[in-house]
Simulated assay, not measured.
Amino acid sequence: MDVQRLLIFREIARTGSIAGAARSLGWTQPAVSQHLRHLERQAGTPLVLRRPRGVQLTEAGQALLRHADAIATRVQAAVADLDALVQMRAGTVRLAVFPSAGATLAPAAMSLLARRHPGLEVRLCTAEPPQAVARLVSGEVDLAVTFAHAGEETPTPGELVRVPVGEDPLRLVLPLSHPCARPPDTPLDLRELAREKWIGGCERCTAHLRRACEAAGFAPDIRHSTDDYVLTQALIACDLAVGLLPRLALHAARDPGVAVRPVAGMRPRTLHILHHREADQIPAVRATVRALLDTAARVLTAS
């Protein structure tokens, strides 16, 4: 049965007449009568008895009215739910971020979003960029915050949009006792660390470290491998190796036993937000992207 006709029939029953329903709906009386006739043909039986001063429901009409009332309640609930989502009084956004962004950008952005739109909920998970993109493509998450190193090929699946977030410089991390630990703000040439033991990170970060060292004329002696930036710094603080960490990771946690220096000639990694093309039409997703961008503009310049 046509839902609209059921709701028109409900209005006829509520007002007690076709004329009353027409006034309530803002329609003409013939239009309401026509919808009632169509509904009665679909039902296969009369639903009302026409009286000089209105209508009286038949037994079939009384039975159908109970269902029409239930449908009207569900339609009203659906309208209320959609209105809450559009007005961002409700909604859920699933967000995947890489670990150092999860420790810095994501909490601040979620806090900002909670102040702007208290009804929105963000569900966070951490994943390195390839895994985050895979989750986004499969529909497990709505947004993914990723990074790419300079010179790295990072193709974006055709159904996704990539939004630039900002740049995150890379830093050399050394033991405090290392001869190259000072001065802290002066860029250090990688060639000065050619004989050192190194710590690798995730697969992509380790590949970038190898490329950077090879460009400087040597192959790094990678003795340890971890994508845990706290463990990386702990190993360095104990004079076991040197490493390369993004500034966001150092902003998230800084071991007092390490020294940090810029890298001469090394370009920063770039950060992006990825989402499906049509997702920017969803108010909750659009608001979350805005909160992430506003947070990144502050955090990336302050870290």
Rank of each mutant, 00 (worst) to 15 (best):
46 P>C: 08
186 T>M: 13
13 A>Y: 00
197 K>E: 15
152 E>K: 06
197 K>T: 15
9 F>P: 02
171 R>L: 10
134 A>C: 09
84 A>H: 06
254 R>W: 10
31 A>Y: 00
94 R>D: 04
108 A>P: 07
38 H>N: 14
53 R>F: 06
51 R>F: 06
69 D>G: 11
275 H>K: 11
84 A>R: 11
232 T>W: 03
121 E>N: 10
144 A>K: 01
114 A>L: 11
96 A>S: 06
278 E>A: 12
154 T>C: 12
103 A>F: 06
35 H>Q: 05
6 L>M: 08
234 A>P: 07
145 V>E: 01
279 A>Q: 12
11 E>Q: 14
94 R>M: 12
110 M>T: 01
106 A>N: 04
86 V>N: 13
236 I>W: 02
96 A>G: 03
272 H>G: 07
140 E>Q: 15
298 R>P: 09
106 A>D: 00
17 S>F: 01
35 H>C: 02
195 R>G: 12
27 W>E: 02
267 R>T: 14
63 A>R: 12
94 R>L: 14
58 T>I: 05
243 G>V: 05
136 L>M: 10
297 A>P: 03
71 I>A: 11
270 T>S: 14
45 T>W: 07
57 L>A: 05
8 I>G: 03
165 V>K: 01
206 T>I: 11
226 T>M: 08
247 R>L: 15
8 I>W: 00
104 T>S: 07
147 F>V: 07
101 A>Q: 04
102 G>I: 06
292 L>W: 07
164 P>N: 12
61 G>P: 00
192 E>A: 15
293 L>R: 04
82 L>R: 14
14 R>F: 05
105 L>N: 03
22 A>D: 00
158 G>F: 09
249 A>S: 09
100 S>R: 00
288 T>H: 03
273 I>P: 01
51 R>S: 08
177 S>G: 15
201 G>Y: 00
189 D>T: 14
215 A>Y: 10
39 L>M: 02
188 L>E: 06
153 E>A: 15
215 A>F: 10
152 E>L: 08
139 G>V: 01
58 T>L: 05
139 G>R: 07
55 V>T: 04
98 F>K: 00
192 E>F: 14
41 R>N: 13
136 L>W: 03
127 A>N: 04
57 L>Q: 02
110 M>C: 08
